[in-house]
């Protein structure tokens, strides 16, 4: 058990270190979601005048967007890091040590969590400066960062699965638009009951990302909404469990010998 913890810690340290040493990655992970948030929140502020719009501020409504986007960033970064390790042979080097495969996965996901935490906290600070009003107060902010991290973990495990299956950085990065689409085809920009096109509302209803978004959003605009939070955490956990299982299987396949 001690050896296992040592391995996970060493791999986690490496994962955090390599991200910390690429300021460009950190800056773009912080900047791009904030930029989209600023543009979206402002450009769509007229939406709050639609009859039946929840709350009176689109900025509050839109705040879930950068958090979910942050999780996506983490997934792509982690996935392409892992794919790069496979391409370069670094993965082979690790495979030759007595390392348990699952340590590699956990170490890598620790890096995702660290980046997710940083993004969650920074976005929260910027959001508060922008006038975001979190109705559930400080405890809600903690829960909000927690749900963001859980979302990042789930997406990160999907990124890892992709990397392990394909072993190609290009393949992982070309999945980026797919994630992006998945985020947009949800209730990210308008509440589901205000989506007019039936086909779009259907997609948004079956898209689990809608529930992640609505869980995060409920903390901001309504306060403590047990149903929304239950669905949000439930979906996030389900994604984490399924994606981790898939990543574990892919890892065993890749390391099979």
């Amino acid at each position: 058990m001690g050896a296992f913890i040592t391995q996970v810690a060493a791999l986690a340290a490496r994962s955090v270190l390599r991200t910390a040493r690429q300021p460009a990655v950190i800056v773009s992970a912080l900047l791009f979601p904030m930029m989209f948030f600023a543009i979206n929140a402002n450009g769509l502020s007229a939406a709050s005048r639609i009859p039946g719009f929840p709350g009176d501020s689109y900025v509050d409504f839109a705040f879930a967007f950068p958090l979910v986007q942050a999780a996506l960033f983490g997934a792509i970064t982690a996935g392409s890091d892992l794919a790069r390790d496979i391409e370069s042979g670094f993965f082979d080097r690790l495979s030759l040590t007595p390392m348990r495969p699952v340590s590699l996965l956990l170490g890598m996901l620790f890096g995702v969590i660290a980046l997710g935490l940083l993004q969650g906290v920074v976005f929260l600070c910027v959001g508060l400066l922008f006038g975001v009003d979190v109705h559930s107060g400080f405890p809600g902010m903690v829960v909000l960062v927690g749900l963001t991290i859980l979302t990042a973990l789930g997406f990160g495990a999907i990124g890892a699965t992709l990397a392990l299956r394909t072993g190609s950085v290009e393949a992982v990065e070309s999945a980026f638009p797919l994630f992006f689409v998945a985020i947009f085809m949800s209730s990210i920009n308008l509440p589901r009951n205000l989506i007019e096109a039936d086909w779009f509302r259907f997609i948004a209803t079956v898209n689990p990302i809608s529930y992640l978004v609505e869980g995060i959003r409920s903390l901001v605009i309504t306060g403590w909404d047990v149903q929304a939070l239950g669905l949000g955490f439930g979906c996030a956990l389900a994604i984490v469990v399924l994606a981790l299982a898939a990543a574990g299987t892919s890892l065993r396949t890749r390391m099979a010998r």
Partner: peptide
């Protein structure tokens, strides 16, 4: 995403 999701705008 915009044309489908934001018609209400």
């Amino acid at each position: 995403a915009f044309a489908g999701g934001l018609t209400r705008i």
